[in-house]
């Protein structure tokens, strides 16, 4: 933070003393143009969701709805159990966040500060799993979960994502940078490993825990391929599954209704992002830097 602040101060001092204004205006112009292009699909989605069917299919397309309506949303709520899907999405995402925070920080502590046989081999496995594509494990995982009798259940949706190699990797990297002397001091004071973990390590781990919480929530909220094959009845659908199934077949071009569905899926996560923007952005930037 201090480096950011000082760079900003230095650059603002520089720009104040420099007379070249046109370059600055050009820069703002280009950035604003890019901004418009980036946000256009969002605008199109929100505007489209309140257009009546006649305006949706109008050619040439119109930007602003002439007679905005909430009809699409009403139809969506009456025909589809979006309340249930919303609850399922939230339940799965929150449980996965809790599991990842707890199990990854515990394992991260063991990998960073404790000694045990097989540690190096195990951590090597964790690193290898970071580059294994999802499609590689998809079907064996499906067969496994089905054989466990967990298809079409919350456990089936949650268990495969309760821990991730990325989570353990993140926590281990951060905990490793915590000085050994802190751990040793607590140990000399008679603290057990559980005490050290809870009272020394966890309180210091707020930044990576926040990052991990956000990454996990984001991944699970938007996850669709796994829930698509596991959730077989409506009472277990998550929001993306409902939207994906809804958008194939007869409704495939009913854009008003589909856009209303898209708004329902995207709005909660965008609001969460706006509320926690610093943590989101820093979290993802830090993950890249580690």
């Amino acid at each position: 933070m201090t480096t950011i602040a000082s760079t900003a101060a230095a650059t603002s001092a520089r720009s104040a003393s420099r007379p070249i204004r046109p370059a600055r205006i050009l820069l703002y112009g280009a950035l604003s143009l890019g901004l418009l292009a980036t946000l256009a699909p969002f605008a199109w989605m929100f505007l489209g969701s309140v257009k009546p069917t006649g305006e949706i299919v109008a050619n040439p397309s119109v930007w602003l709805p002439r007679s905005p309506t909430l009809g699409n949303f009403e139809q969506l709520l009456s025909k589809q159990n979006f309340g249930v899907y919303f609850f399922n999405s939230t339940l799965v995402a929150v449980t996965c966040v809790a599991g990842n925070l707890l199990f990854s920080s515990m394992a991260g502590y063991a990998f960073a500060k404790l000694e045990f046989a097989g540690k190096r081999l195990l951590f090597g496995l964790v690193l290898t799993m970071l580059i294994i594509p999802g499609v590689t494990t998809f079907v064996p995982l499906f067969v496994l979960v089905s054989n466990m009798g967990l298809s079409n259940s919350y456990l089936g949706l949650i268990l495969p994502f309760l821990v991730t190699p990325l989570g353990v990797f993140l926590m281990r990297q951060f905990i490793q940078d915590i000085p050994d002397s802190l751990v040793e001091a607590a140990r000399l004071d008679g603290a057990g490993e559980t005490g050290i973990f809870l009272r020394v390590i966890v309180p210091l781990c707020r930044p990576p825990l926040a990052t991990l919480a956000i990454l996990t929530f984001l991944a699970q909220w938007n996850n669709f391929l796994w829930p698509l094959v596991i959730a077989q009845t409506e009472d277990h659908y998550t929001l993306p599954v409902a939207l994906a199934l809804f958008s194939v077949g007869a409704n495939g071009t009913n854009y008003g209704l589909l856009l209303a569905g898209a708004v329902t899926v995207v709005t909660p996560i965008v609001l969460l992002f706006l509320a926690l923007q610093k943590q989101f952005i820093q979290g993802i930037a830090n993950t890249g830097m580690k």
């Binding site: 980036t38 699909p41 898209a262 708004v263 995207v266 989101f280």
Partner: peptide, 16 residues
């Protein structure tokens, strides 16, 4: 604003 597309669900975005 530039970061916003990252958080969106691909299913929803595909519709748009």
């Amino acid at each position: 604003a530039y970061f916003a597309p990252v958080v969106t669900s691909v299913v929803a975005i595909a519709v748009v």
